[in-house]
Design a protein around this nucleic acid. Structure first.
Lengths: 126, 126
DNA sequence: GCTTGACCTGGAGCGCGCTCCAAGGGTCAT
DNA sequence: ATGACCCTTGGAGCGCGCTCCAGGTCAAGC
C-alpha cells in the first residue's frame, strides 16, 4: 500500500462544510477538540479528510446542544483511551439528560410566551 | 386613599422567588430591565411588590429562551410608550419564531446524540 | 454600646467562546 | 516579477452576562 499524498479540503472548505468559521476550526484544534489533526500540504496548509469533517459535525452537535468546550475536551480525550466506550456512553447519556431538561424548560417558557402573545393579540386586534 | 408604607419583599426574598441571584437583580435594574424600580424602605433598601416579582418572571422567561439583554431592554422600553402594544406583539412573535428554530435545531442534534448512544450501547453491551 | 447580618453603591474582574490582527509564506495568473 | 489570494502562527481583544469586592449604612438582638 502506498501513502496517498495529503489530498483533502482546505480549511475554508471544511469551514463551509461544517458551518463553523475558519477561526473556530483553528481554535478547536488548538483546544484539543479534534479527534485527529488534519494532515498538512507540502506548504504546511491543513487538508481535511471526510473523517475530519465528520468529527466537526460531532463537535457542532455537542456545542449546539450546550456542551461546554471543556467537557467536549474530556469526551474526545476518551477516544485516546482503549476500552473507554462505557465512559463515552455515560457522558453522552448525561448530556442527553441535560439537553432534555433544557428543552423542557424552554418549552415551559415558550408556553408563557404564547400566553403573552395571545394577550397582546386580543388587545391589539380589539 | 392613604399611601401604604413601602412593604414588600427584600431583595434576597425576591431573588429566591425569581430564581435569580441578588447581584443579578441589581444588575438587571441597572441595565434598565425593570418595568418599575422597586420602592425603597426608609433606610434605602429595595422592597419588591408582587408586581415587581411577576416582571422578574417575564425577564427569566425571555432570558432563558435566549433573548439578549439588549433586546429585552428594547422590549421593556416599549412599555413606556403609549400605544406600543402592536410593537411589543411583533417582538414577542419574532422571538417565538427564534425560539422555535432553536428548539428544532436542538432536537435535530438530540436525534444525532441518540443515534450515537445507540451505537455505543450496542458496542458496550457486546 | 456592641456585634451581627442584611443591605447599599460604584466599579473591577471573570469565564466563555470565539474573533480579529499583524506579519509572513506559498502558489498562481498575467 | 507583480499582484491577488489563500493559507500560516501567536497572541491580543471582545461581547456577553453576570459575579465579586471594598467600603459603608442601618436595624435588631444581646
Amino acid at each position: 500500500m502506498t501513502e496517498a499524498p495529503p489530498e483533502g479540503m482546505t480549511i475554508s472548505a471544511a469551514a463551509e462544510a461544517s458551518g463553523l468559521s475558519v477561526d473556530t476550526l483553528r481554535y478547536y484544534e488548538k483546544e484539543g477538540l479534534t479527534l485527529h489533526r488534519p494532515e498538512r500540504s507540502s506548504s504546511g496548509q491543513r487538508r481535511y479528510t471526510q473523517e475530519n469533517v465528520a468529527w466537526l459535525g460531532t463537535l457542532v452537535m455537542l456545542r449546539r446542544t450546550g456542551m461546554p468546550i471543556r467537557d467536549i475536551k474530556k469526551f474526545v480525550e476518551l477516544y485516546r483511551v482503549d476500552g473507554s466506550e462505557a465512559d463515552r456512553l455515560t457522558i453522552l447519556e448525561r448530556h442527553r439528560e441535560h439537553v432534555l431538561e433544557e428543552l423542557a424548560e424552554v418549552q415551559k417558557h415558550l408556553a408563557a410566551i404564547n400566553r403573552k402573545i395571545d394577550y397582546y393579540e386580543e388587545k391589539v386586534l380589539r
